[in-house]
Design a protein around this nucleic acid. Structure first.
Lengths: 206, 206
DNA sequence: AAAAACATTTGATGTAGGTCAAAAAGTATG
DNA sequence: CATACTTTTTGACCTACATCAAATGTTTTT
């Protein structure tokens, strides 16, 4: 268990820059009834994390999920001292340690900002309260979870039977913007291959 | 796209043996309010599929999800004529082509019974209706989806960085009963390795 | 119970992609 | 702008696992 990152800030508790949310307009907002929208806004906060900040670390419980408005986050675990990247998040995506956020048990992954991040934060506790009181929020959360289920399923499938080359091409087609935002080693790990292999693939395909 | 299975029955529409559901007690039932429980029972049906029946096939839309009470199901796709097993379901699990069920777009997987199957069937349409009307059902479905999200995430992670040996051991620990219900080739494919490799692993570990 | 069909094992061989090491390119810092 | 640090590339070599093929074992059918 080696930490190989420069100056991690370890708090994990995003207090410093929290701001009012009045007037924010989110992509999934139009689905909600006005009352639900109002309640939702009451429950979330704007947060800002500096570059290279660790939002979560193993052993902590992921009490919040973040909807990223700006910046880039990578999530990873350590396996025999090697980083295994589990998720890459940029604008428009949710970042949290899903297992921990869902079960409220200690997480096993790191969640690190690579750029300054601006996000909307919702705690699991508030999420449960909102879902218990607002049926449209419960269904919105259900739909979002469904989308992530599909995404994880696709990821598993591509790791199961695509070659390194094919996995790279797939990411290139689906999400080329990701390739520009993260260092090569990070993308390689996310794709389940070594850095050297990804570098060679890239050279071959120009 | 080669079909390599004996006598698939292709209907996909489970009419033959549907039965009344009065008095059924499901594991997740106690969470629901009596009214929701009642509505739920009104919406589901008991179905039975014979051995080697294809519940779904590619191009079809998965209009139902099945909660398996008895029997075993394997789901797979064909990639260059080779079967890639995506999901193994026995008693207590849900079987559906998640992508298709969620999006109501054509599915890409086969869903085949290996034994006679007895299941509770819920259509996507009814599910949406129930979730729109009963907040506790919406939250129950959310929780179930969350569990499957975690499961898929674990599967992706193990395919990403565990060796064939380790993946086998993990399945052995977590779900040994699966190993007894499905043929070796099916399990090997599910674990992302060749049949021969799994056979050799098993021989080594006695 | 013999024949056919299917599932598993075992052996020989090939290869995609891993690891290690060093060079080259790019970026940050005093 | 020169030094240090990080990231990416390139090359040589190696290994885990795939593929192919044949033998053995097991279940189903007649």
């Amino acid at each position: 268990m080696v930490k190989s990152h420069s100056q991690p800030s370890l708090s994990g508790i995003p207090e410093p820059h929290s701001e009012s949310m009045t007037g924010i307009d989110l992509p999934f907002f139009h689905i909600l009834a006005p009352a639900s929208r109002e309640a939702f806004l009451q429950s979330v906060q704007m947060v800002r994390f500096p570059r290279n900040h660790f939002i979560f670390q193993p052993e902590q419980i992921a009490r919040h999920a973040y909807f990223v408005l700006k910046g880039a986050i990578r999530q990873f675990t350590l396996a025999d001292g090697k980083e295994v990247v589990t998720r890459l998040v940029i604008e428009g995506g949710f970042s949290t340690a899903f297992y921990s956020f869902i079960s409220q048990k200690p997480c096993f992954e790191y969640c690190q900002t690579l750029e300054e991040v601006e996000a909307i934060s919702l705690s699991r506790r508030e999420m449960e309260r909102l879902c218990a009181e607002h049926i449209d929020i419960a269904n919105l959360e259900r739909k979002i979870t469904e989308q992530y289920l599909i995404q994880e399923q696709e990821r598993a499938l591509s790791l199961q039977f695509l070659s390194a080359q094919e996995r790279y091409e797939q990411l290139f087609k689906q999400d080329a913007s990701i390739l520009l935002r993260f260092p090569l080693g990070t993308i390689a790990s996310y794709l389940g291959m070594s850095q050297e292999t990804l570098s060679r693939l890239r050279a071959k395909n120009i």
